[in-house]
Design a protein around this nucleic acid. Structure first.
Lengths: 196, 196
DNA sequence: AACGATACGGAACGTCGTTCCGTATCGCAA
DNA sequence: TTGCGATACGGAACGACGTTCCGTATCGTT
């Protein structure tokens, strides 16, 4: 609600041809730049890559965070949809949760600077944080609840704290060869089981 | 070595009176501003609080990170010195490690934005990261080695990864009432013991 | 072909960390 | 005390950033 039908919303279906073309050009350019320079790449770089003025970016995506959201929307969606599937497939809810978090970590770790941007309270990335939460928190909650219901883990930790912690652990996992988030995540997930 | 005797080094013992006065004024002002506005507060705010020009700050502290280092130097030192003491006092090395990490977490969590700044690869905060590492990594290594030697934990994880993970978990623990790093840290530390 | 609506490009703004330089202050020597 | 060289000071200026604004170019329609 309140979404006027463009930018971060569902496909705009605009009247003008150049608008639709630029929307896609922009997404492709942003994806390419994010891949090489990270999510924190300057807006001007993305505009240059797309062969477009900076104003055009802001007409399509009200803020840089909205552009990031749009670029990764499909992968976030895929991650969200994997949750129930894993729950149905896995031997136990805890195993499913572990596998789902692996997906999440893989996603974050392979996108340069995304994990850091997610928790960045400065410079208007709150929308990014909010979008990830809106889409993924319910999935995490479902997995966690199932594990709790099955008695595999206790309910000490809520889904928000878990996701936030996992996300935090992924910060800098790119760009620092000495650091690998995965063992720590594994430790955390393992520790979730049978507390005490 | 290589320290020309001012800025982040040991007390400068400068000839001129105004220099010494400003050094202290600056540290006090920075501490006050960090307390209210966080570690990311603009340099100009600190200059204003101290009643000083921005140039003066940069003459005393070559970069913003050096100022942050100087403000928290004593507390980092205290944390470092607590390591061996805890190791000598605690019932086991693992318990000492746990208590020491609690100190570290308390320190990070009570300084608004410090944990985030520590891992911030943008905007020249590398010196901050490096200083924390120089001072605290040996201590952590000592605790970890003792625990490994005692057979309490295995050596899957090196001290760097552990410290980095703990530091990451503390990001945003201030400024987000829904998130508390401590339970996650406790989970991690507990999981360190007897892997497998 | 002409027109109104819409989108475009990129200059301009405010904020940041940092640098630079003309001026004020310091400590010392006479 | 006064003068002087060395040193530190304040704050304007710079470049990079996210974002906004507006004169101009392009679109779809009549």
């Amino acid at each position: 609600m309140g979404d006027s039908g463009q930018g971060t919303g569902t496909t705009p279906e605009s009247k003008r041809k150049d608008v639709r073309r630029n929307q896609q050009t922009l997404l492709d350019a942003a994806a390419a730049v994010f891949l090489t320079s990270g999510v924190d790449a300057p807006v001007r770089d993305i505009a240059a890559e797309a062969g477009v003025g900076t104003g055009t970016i802001y007409r399509h995506f009200p803020t840089r965070a909205d552009l990031v959201i749009a670029v990764y929307r499909h992968q976030v969606e895929a991650c969200a949809e994997a949750g129930p599937a894993l729950l149905a497939a896995g031997p136990t809810p805890h195993a499913a949760l572990g596998r789902w978090l692996d997906l999440f970590v893989d996603f974050l770790v392979t996108k340069h600077g995304l994990a850091a941007a997610l928790q960045n309270d400065t410079s208007g990335f709150e929308a990014l944080h909010a979008h990830f939460l809106d889409r993924l928190l319910p999935v995490c909650t479902q997995l966690l609840d199932a594990a709790v219901a099955g008695g595999e883990i206790s309910d000490d930790l809520d889904a928000y704290q878990l996701m936030r912690g996992i996300g935090n652990l992924c910060i800098g996992a790119d760009s620092d060869p000495r650091y690998d988030a995965r063992p720590l995540v594994a430790l955390l997930v393992a520790g979730l089981r049978r507390p005490h």
